[in-house]
């Protein structure tokens, strides 16, 4: 009789554990402990509550910093950031993901949303271009973009559907190089990680990623005339649960302070 009881008790304990875990996950998803105060259905014009921002992977450092400043400037707000490939985020938003703001690393992925009516009047707030990064030890002794086409050199780049992959294909075509990558990663930060770990000899990432990871990777200068740029548009989303917060966050990004953060990280002016 003892055994089934203890089994049942263990079962209950597991259920309790799972439920409490779920509760914790749910309550922590809006961000910091002070969360929970979701904004009303757009009735109050004051900026409050949670602002959910979907942003391109390459904006990770800058948007994290801008979000912190935003929360300090608007007490009672919480910014929830979700970083992924712009194309992945655009698909999530058109499938109904609850976002207030979308910041894309390409005009194309923003156009997906504007043509679907999910966003209107995007503002371009930054530009970015590509660079080659190599592990600090530079095992394959990469000195130029052309070295990526050498046999036996392991290259990581973004998969062709995401903005950094589009840019990589464009740059390599302009340079007249045929590179067979070792891997096509789902977003630019995954490329950077593979370089940082030394698992590949070189990666094609944004200039800003090379700046952000300056201690662990080395940037190799691009030859003149082959680089391409991508523009970063941002927009408050039509179905934002927190429209006032969404507009305020967009304003914060395009403010002088926001643009200064982006410039310091190596982004180009719009």
């Amino acid at each position: 009789m003892n055994r089934p009881l203890s089994v049942r008790r263990a079962g209950l304990a597991i259920v309790a554990l799972v439920l409490s875990g779920m509760a914790a996950a749910c309550s922590s998803s809006p961000g910091t402990p002070a969360s929970g105060s979701s904004s009303g259905p757009g009735s109050t014009p004051a900026v409050t509550g949670t602002v959910t921002v979907f942003a391109a992977s390459s904006l990770k450092e800058t948007f994290t910093s801008i979000a912190k400043r935003f929360e300090a400037a608007h007490p009672g707000t919480t910014v929830v950031l979700s970083f992924a490939a712009s194309s992945a985020l655009a698909t999530q938003i058109t499938s109904g993901a609850p976002a207030d703001v979308f910041a894309s690393a390409s005009a194309k992925d923003m156009a997906t949303l504007t043509s679907a009516g999910a966003a209107t009047a995007p503002t371009t707030f930054a530009t970015n271009s590509l660079t080659v990064v190599v592990p600090s030890a530079n095992p394959a002794q990469i000195a130029s973009l052309a070295d990526l086409a050498r046999a036996g050199v392991k290259v990581a780049q973004c998969q062709p559907a995401v903005p950094c992959g589009v840019l990589a294909a464009k740059v390599l075509a302009t340079a007249g190089l045929t590179v067979t990558p070792a891997t096509l990663e789902p977003d630019v930060k995954s490329v950077l990680t593979k370089v940082r770990l030394g698992e590949v000899d070189a990666g094609l990432v944004y200039v800003t990623d090379a700046v952000a990871a300056a201690g662990s990777v080395t940037a190799v200068p691009m030859p003149a005339g082959v680089n391409a740029t991508t523009a970063y548009p941002i927009a408050a989303l039509s179905h934002a649960a927190n429209p006032a917060g969404a507009r305020a966050f967009v304003d914060a990004v395009v403010s002088a302070e926001g643009l200064a953060v982006l410039k310091a990280a190596g982004f180009g002016a719009p």
């Binding site: 698909t91 998969q159 995401v162 990558p181 070792a182 891997t183 789902p186």
Partner: peptide, 27 residues
């Protein structure tokens, strides 16, 4: 798989990875 073996068509792109990546560009 995607973390350890990466993604390249014909070499390491298995069906689940192809499904995941196609969802971004061609549902």
């Amino acid at each position: 798989t995607i973390t350890f073996a990466g993604n390249f068509p014909g070499r390491t792109q298995t069906m689940p990875i192809a499904v995941y990546l196609a969802m971004e560009s061609d549902p």
